[in-house]
Design a protein around this nucleic acid. Structure first.
Length: 571
RNA sequence: UGCCUUAUGGUGUAACGGUAGCACAAACGACUCUGAAUCGUUUUGUCUAGGUUCAAAUCCUAGUAAGGCAGCCA
């Protein structure tokens, strides 16, 4: 690897970092503590990566820490499988960048909101004592009905004025398992008529006789997000609780709870930013789950998925993802980021990181007729044009070669400067060849090209400096390593797969995966999983985890930019 | 006829009352043993209408448009 991880550049300022800086300057907080609080009900995706980079980045830049916390208050949806994948993804993303500010509990476990159930229960008792919460017997449907709608005021629950004693008694009974699921709830007593629906006596606890992945059978009542989240933040002494825009209308509730309870001071504050939307990409956990469960992709880590595990398997590095996250900025504007920005970040990272190799995706046989049968030699090839210190390797060259089908045209289009009948082209690191004859099969397809080489034109040779417009890649047929290469492309054909009420299933890209057997230079046999390679003139490759020495499998991370394809498309 | 939020080139962002800048994309050119990379040049922008001010993308008012909010999900 050439220039390894250049240190991640400092993030440009944004409105949240401005708030943090101001709070530190004013003494509103001494040391910044942020948190990344995923619910373990799915795999993390690139939108989460934005949030991770923000929260860990703030902690790092301001000398604080960031907690990884499972926001696990709904046992019906959560699972340890997700907990494990989340931990792995976060560790991978921040490795060698912010692992020094990642805070776990003492036992190297993440924080869990469910660890606070006891304390949350005690806080609920306090609320009841102060007349700020009550047990409500309304069914879910009735609760909806009483709550009204955004443009329609609510009505008070008939149970809103129960005595403190009765509420205490009923809440104890709820906790003891005296009632079936859904029979009762604990609700905050705020204002049934409030213009913000989240303040119309929101539900704090519901009854669920369901085992929890982390607390087992200890509880049959579970706190709601709004109740658990602000108090978990407080318990962990979070200073800045950063979340996405849809929680904006919940902030008054977040504040109400913290101001209604005897929590330590200073208390945490919530700040919201716009979630990431990427063109040609679906981002919601539900939709990603649908892709997986309907078999539209091969799994959560399918290299076409925008999940962190999918991007990792595809061959995208953590540094590239971080660089992307840094570049897109943090605002309150709900925009659509072009996927090209991600692709640029990936190429920029791989360009410095990946050693160069030769390989042919769609082989076309070439015979060098002025070389004797069985002729074999090796030519030196640079491992990295940007870093000569990486040296060269010996690439076998022989009389029979493969070149790329796209690099020959019997009837060349305008501005085509690759190989054509009677035309010359340079074989990278080797000779200049001239195409003398096109041999065809019975069906008219091209069987092979017969060419002559200018034997003095090798690097350093007498005619090596001849100006030849085209240079193409090649591989020696006898020495080539046959390997499976998986060509990935965008999953959708529409920039906004769900625009105008469209079902995303109707715009799946049928060519999002193409598997072919490529002929690669033999040096690629020793490829290791953490390595990345550039197939010169084609693409960046990474070894797939399913690869074996007997059956090498490479994933195309991304193509090189292809100006010629654009030019060719014009005509 | 509710509440909250947002609006700067094609896209994403910066400018904190004083020169509208950056990145991606696009176009053109140089260089090139990768039609890559690199380098250079260029195109395109403050939602609308009023107001305050010597001066407004920025402050005020009104409008328009977009997003979010009516789970015992998070």
């Amino acid at each position: 690897m050439t220039t390894p991880d250049s240190p991640d550049a400092p993030a440009p300022s944004d409105f949240i970092r401005d708030i943090v800086a101001a709070d530190l300057a004013s003494g509103a907080c001494q040391r910044v503590v942020t948190r990344f609080p995923p619910e373990p009900n799915g795999y993390l995706h690139i939108g989460h990566a934005k949030s991770i980079c923000l929260n860990f980045g703030i902690a790092k830049e301001f000398g604080g820490v960031c907690h990884l916390r499972m926001d696990d208050t709904n046992p019906a949806k959560e699972d340890v499988e997700y907990v494990d994948s989340i931990i792995a993804d976060v560790r991978w993303l921040i490795a060698d960048w912010a692992d020094d500010v990642l805070r776990f509990k003492e036992d190297a476990e993440p924080f869990y909101a469910s660890d606070y159930f006891g304390q949350l229960y005690a806080y609920a008792l306090t609320l009841i004592h102060e007349g700020k919460a009550y047990v409500c017997d309304l069914t879910a449907e009735q609760t909806d009905e009483y709550r009204g709608a955004p443009d329609r005021p609510g009505r008070p629950s008939p149970f809103r004025d129960r005595s403190v004693e009765e509420n205490l008694h009923l809440f104890h009974e709820m906790r003891a398992g005296a009632f079936p699921d859904g029979a009762r709830t604990l609700r905050a007593r705020i204002d049934p008529h409030h213009p913000n629906v989240w303040l119309r006596d929101p539900v704090l606890y519901r009854i669920r006789h369901t085992a929890h992945h982390h607390t087992g059978d200890a509880w049959c009542i579970y706190p709601m997000y709004d109740y658990a989240h602000c108090l978990s933040d407080s318990i962990e002494r979070i200073t800045h609780s950063v979340c996405t825009l849809e929680f904006e209308v919940h902030r008054p509730l977040y504040n109400w709870l913290l101001e209604s309870l005897p929590v330590p001071s200073p208390r945490p504050h919530q700040h919201e930013f716009a979630r990431l939307s990427l063109s040609y990409t679906l981002m919601s956990k539900r939709k990603l789950l649908a892709l997986v469960s309907e078999g539209l992709v091969a799994g959560w880590d399918d290299p076409r998925m925008p999940t962190i595990s999918g991007l990792r398997r595809r061959g995208v590095t953590a540094a590239a993802l971080r660089h992307f996250a840094l570049h897109i900025g943090i605002t309150k504007y709900n925009g659509l980021t072009e996927v090209g920005v991600l692709e640029h970040a990936i190429r920029e990272d791989l360009n410095t990181r990946a050693q160069r190799r030769l390989g042919v995706l769609r082989p076309l046989k070439v015979v060098i007729t002025n070389l004797p049968d069985g002729h074999t030699e090796t030519v030196p090839a640079a491992n990295h044009p940007l870093d000569p210190a990486l040296g060269t390797r010996a690439v076998p060259f022989s009389r029979e070669l493969y070149i790329e089908q796209d690099d020959f045209a019997e009837v060349p289009p305008p501005k085509f400067f690759r190989l054509k009948p009677c035309g010359e082209v340079r074989l990278k690191y080797a000779y200049i060849i001239k195409c003398d004859e096109v041999v065809k099969n019975a069906d008219g397809t091209i069987a092979e090209l017969r060419c002559t080489a200018d034997l003095d034109s090798k690097t350093g040779g007498a005619t090596s400096s001849r100006k030849i417009k085209g240079t193409i890649h090649w591989v020696s047929a006898a020495h080539a390593l046959a390997a499976e290469v998986r060509l990935y492309d965008r999953l959708f054909t529409e920039a906004e797969p769900e625009a105008e009420g469209r079902d995303f299933r109707t715009c799946l890209n049928p060519h999002s995966l193409e598997v072919l057997t490529a002929q690669l230079e033999p040096a690629l046999v020793t490829a290791r999983p953490e390595e990345r390679f550039q197939l010169e003139r084609l693409a960046y490759l990474a070894l797939d985890p399913t690869s074996t020495p007997e059956r090498p499998v490479f994933n195309r991370v991304i193509t090189l930019k292809d100006t010629w394809a654009k030019e060719a498309a014009k005509s």
